[in-house]
Amino acid sequence: MLKEKLRERKLRQGLTWAGLPLVAILGWFYPWLGFLLLGCMAGAVGVAIFRGRAWCDWMCPRGAFFDLFIRPLSRRKAIPAFFRSQKVRVFMLFLIFTMIGTQWYLARGYLAAMGLALVRLLTITTLVGIILGLVIHPRVWCHICPMGTLAHWLSGGKNPLFISRTCTGCRACARACPMQLKPYEYRLEGLVGDNDCLKCGTCVAACPRRALSFDSGESKRESGLVA
């Protein structure tokens, strides 16, 4: 079941990853492509309002690129808590939007220059993400990504992941999670309270006890709470 889920994710990510080099490389020659980045930003926030951070799973070209091409080369070490710090996330959010605002102000309404500013920003942050991905873990950048942070804040209670009392704490879910989350830690609460969940379903597929589900009714059935 896990292999099928991973194959499904790769197929979906295969539909979107090319958007990253399209903008980060061709954008230097065609600056207008930079405005596609605004669509990605809007998508991350818009989807978060209804489904949590689901955009970051496979719809985000950069996230898909990291999983498909950086993960096989990554050292896949534990992501330091530093990168999940609220202060670091707020700082990155402020830094990125300040950079955009400053460059757009200097562009003085010249749309090509404004588009190039977005291309420049995407290229730099992607290079940082690649380095962090190779040295530590492919999804490190996703923990400090400004749009990921906004999605994180908007994701509370959206399409939650339930965990039943059949969970034995085997940690199979944590090993499968692309964000290195630990769903098993919420087995007493019955609801995974980490807003960085990408709703990818790999933990659900990896659980040998079928204790995880995005369907509260199914979770209760697996617990034996309902007939």
Rank of each mutant, 00 (worst) to 15 (best):
residue 2 L to V: 13
residue 5 K to G: 07
residue 6 L to C: 03
residue 6 L to K: 14
residue 9 R to D: 15
residue 15 L to W: 12
residue 18 A to F: 14
residue 21 P to E: 11
residue 22 L to F: 12
residue 22 L to M: 07
residue 24 A to D: 01
residue 25 I to H: 04
residue 29 F to W: 15
residue 30 Y to F: 15
residue 31 P to C: 08
residue 34 G to L: 06
residue 34 G to D: 09
residue 35 F to W: 13
residue 36 L to E: 07
residue 43 G to C: 05
residue 44 A to I: 00
residue 45 V to D: 01
residue 49 I to F: 12
residue 51 R to C: 00
residue 52 G to H: 02
residue 58 W to K: 00
residue 59 M to L: 15
residue 60 C to P: 10
residue 60 C to W: 05
residue 60 C to H: 00
residue 62 R to Y: 13
residue 66 F to E: 11
residue 69 F to N: 08
residue 71 R to F: 06
residue 71 R to S: 15
residue 76 R to W: 04
residue 87 K to Q: 04
residue 87 K to A: 01
residue 89 R to Y: 03
residue 100 I to T: 05
residue 102 T to V: 15
residue 103 Q to K: 12
residue 107 A to C: 03
residue 109 G to H: 06
residue 111 L to W: 12
residue 113 A to C: 02
residue 113 A to N: 08
residue 114 M to F: 10
residue 115 G to Y: 06
residue 121 L to K: 10
residue 122 L to T: 10
residue 124 I to T: 12
residue 126 T to H: 04
residue 126 T to Y: 04
residue 129 G to W: 09
residue 131 I to N: 03
residue 132 L to K: 11
residue 136 I to G: 06
residue 136 I to C: 10
residue 144 I to G: 07
residue 145 C to R: 01
residue 146 P to N: 06
residue 147 M to R: 04
residue 148 G to P: 00
residue 149 T to N: 12
residue 152 H to M: 12
residue 153 W to Y: 13
residue 156 G to T: 11
residue 159 N to W: 01
residue 163 I to C: 03
residue 166 T to Q: 14
residue 168 T to H: 07
residue 169 G to Q: 03
residue 174 A to V: 08
residue 176 A to R: 12
residue 179 M to T: 04
residue 182 K to V: 10
residue 182 K to E: 14
residue 184 Y to G: 00
residue 185 E to R: 14
residue 187 R to W: 12
residue 188 L to M: 13
residue 189 E to Q: 10
residue 189 E to R: 13
residue 189 E to G: 02
residue 190 G to I: 09
residue 190 G to L: 08
residue 191 L to Y: 04
residue 197 C to D: 02
residue 197 C to L: 01
residue 199 K to F: 02
residue 199 K to D: 00
residue 201 G to E: 09
residue 202 T to Y: 11
residue 203 C to F: 11
residue 203 C to M: 03
residue 204 V to M: 05
residue 206 A to G: 04
residue 209 R to C: 04
residue 211 A to G: 15
residue 214 F to I: 01
residue 217 G to H: 14
residue 219 S to D: 00
residue 220 K to I: 05
residue 226 V to S: 07
residue 227 A to L: 14
